[in-house]
Simulated assay, not measured.
Amino acid sequence: MTTPTTGAGPGAAGTAAVPGAAVVTGAAGGLGRAIAAALHADGWRVLLTDIDADAVATAAAPLGGWSRTLDVRDEAACADIAAEAAGRGGLGLWVNNAGILVTGPSWEHDAATRRRVLEVNTLGAMNGTLAALAVMRTQGYGHVLNVVSLAGLVAAPGETVYAASKHALVAFSIGTQADLRLAGHRGVHVSCLCPDGIWTPMLHDRLDDPGAAASFTGTLLTPERVARRAARLARRPRPVVAVPRWRGVQVRLLDALPGAALRLLPAVMAVGRAGQRRQRRRTGGGHH
């Protein structure tokens, strides 16, 4: 596979083959594993990373077997992963997928919990982004894809600390993209993928959790659907993509009208609780 010239990369006109390697964090299961599989099917050489060494090795086995242990909170470790991936014909794509969800009113979380959510969801994604950009800016091409959430576009009730961590990631991503353009880097991209609730282990135990009701107010997605959209976004970068698109419009409208959103809150949460009951019936009250 030929390394593209400066300015080429996924989505560049006339580029048929993906450039170099892709890194996916939090890839041992759930959405991360599905994204890794979709990218592998699309021709990427994928390095799967996760804090769980055994689980990520198992996930990587059918995709070429390339995996590494990574705690995204470790800045130096992220840099090492970026350098390793760059050694396989260049680092074409870095997907920041690792994340954790906590629910409930903000005042119920202790300082350690708040810190952990921000360290993984925000600072961890910043570590990955900056490690990747250190390589990509020198190469002249590359794409960082940050898996955010609709909670990055609207203040999701019951998921306040989680939403705050994701809002920060959206601001960091869009601002970094702007900084890249101002610095003259036309072939390096940063994208945010903001999906609705996804039926993964993150939500499997949340069917009776009123704090998670916001994640069930719209279209509950499969990991595979979101992964397919991620693979398309890897090919054709855009700053922010919501899945499904109509939900992005809806939550941005609520975000723009916070007074109205507060008045609608009881109805919104009732819809979410109904969504939880519906999913419980579909799954028999347990996991897939």
Rank of each mutant, 00 (worst) to 15 (best):
M1H: 07
T2S: 15
P4G: 15
T6K: 14
P10E: 14
R33K: 09
D50P: 06
A53W: 00
A59W: 02
A60L: 09
W66G: 07
V72K: 10
D74W: 09
A77N: 10
D80V: 01
I81F: 01
G87T: 03
G90Y: 04
L93N: 12
L93P: 10
I100W: 00
T103G: 01
G104W: 01
W107F: 09
D110L: 08
L118F: 15
V120L: 13
T138I: 10
G140Q: 12
V154K: 05
A156I: 05
G158F: 01
H167R: 01
V170I: 14
A171G: 09
I174E: 15
Q177D: 12
A178E: 11
L182I: 00
H185F: 09
R186T: 05
V190Y: 01
D196I: 00
D196Y: 04
H204P: 05
D205V: 03
L207C: 03
A212V: 01
A213G: 02
A214F: 01
G218I: 00
P223M: 06
E224D: 15
R228F: 03
R228N: 06
P239K: 07
D255H: 14
A256C: 13
A260I: 10
R263G: 10
P266D: 13
G272Q: 01
G272N: 02
A274Y: 00
R278I: 02
T283Y: 06
G286F: 04
H287Y: 07
